[in-house]
Each structure stands twice: as C-alpha cells, then as structure tokens.
C-alpha cells in the first residue's frame, strides 16, 4: 500500500538502489541500510511496516539480524522478508525455519516486486490481527 514504510537491508549498493528506486517509484517510503547492524538500528527508530533483509551481509548476517529484530518489542508483528541470493530450496527452507515471514529470490523481478511487497504487507497485517 502506498505510503507504507519499507526498510531495505542490502549491502550491495546497486541492488539496494534498484529495490529502493522501484519501491519509491510506486509510492512506498523506503529506508535503506547497508549492513545488518545499521538495519537493526534503523528498524528501532524508523518504525517500518515491512523489512526486506538480504541474507549475506558483512558483519552480522541476515539470520542474526532477524533474531535481533525479533527481540525488539517495538517491532512486534512487523513482517521480515528474506532476500536470497540463490533461488534454492535449501535457502528457502532455512529462511522459513529461521522465522522469516517470506523470501524473495534474486534476481528480483522489477515487474512483480511492488505486488509481492503489497502481499507481504497485507499478510503480515492479517497475521497480527
């Protein structure tokens, strides 16, 4: 839904820019972080509606960042979606086990990204309620 705030955590600047620009273009409010630590810190302060989290990050990785986010009471119910580098089954299963609310495999589809994000937002809300 337009106006929702999406936190994107992704270390590769080009990929980050791509996701940010696409989501901004369709009307989302995008906050960008380039590392797990930065993402966790920003999540606490920017009150996001959805977090898109890359898994392979310098410093703490996506799994560890997710764990820290889950410990933050301010972020209860905010869906966190994994951005996986490989569209591989092992990774998918692993993200589900780790507690991510979903995953998007790279390369992300520019055409589909807005509607996928929209789905995650509404599913996340549905779960909370």
């Amino acid at each position: 839904m337009s106006g929702d705030r999406i936190l994107v955590v992704e270390d590769n600047p080009l990929n980050l820019k791509l996701v940010r620009d696409v989501l901004t273009a369709v009307g989302y409010d995008v906050v960008a972080a380039q590392s797990g630590e930065e993402g966790v810190a920003l999540a606490g302060s920017c009150d996001p509606d959805l977090v898109l989290m890359d898994l392979q990050l310098p410093g703490i990785d996506g799994y560890e960042a997710l764990r820290l986010l889950r410990q933050d009471p301010r972020l209860g119910g905010v869906p966190v979606v994994a951005l996986t580098a490989f569209a591989m089954r092992e990774d998918r299963e692993r993200t589900a086990r780790a507690g991510f609310d979903g995953y998007l495999s790279k390369p992300i589809s520019v055409r589909e990204l807005p509607s996928q994000v929209d789905d995650f937002l509404s599913n996340g809300r549905a779960d909370v309620r």
Binding site: N12, L14, N15, L18, D21, A85, P107, V110, R111
Partner: peptide
Amino acid sequence: RTPLNAVIGFSEV
C-alpha cells in the same frame, strides 16, 4: 551473479 542482478534489474526498470 550479484552485479548481473543489477544489470537485469535496471534494464527491467
């Protein structure tokens, strides 16, 4: 793969 994702993504945009 990583830079390639950017090539594909920006072309699509």
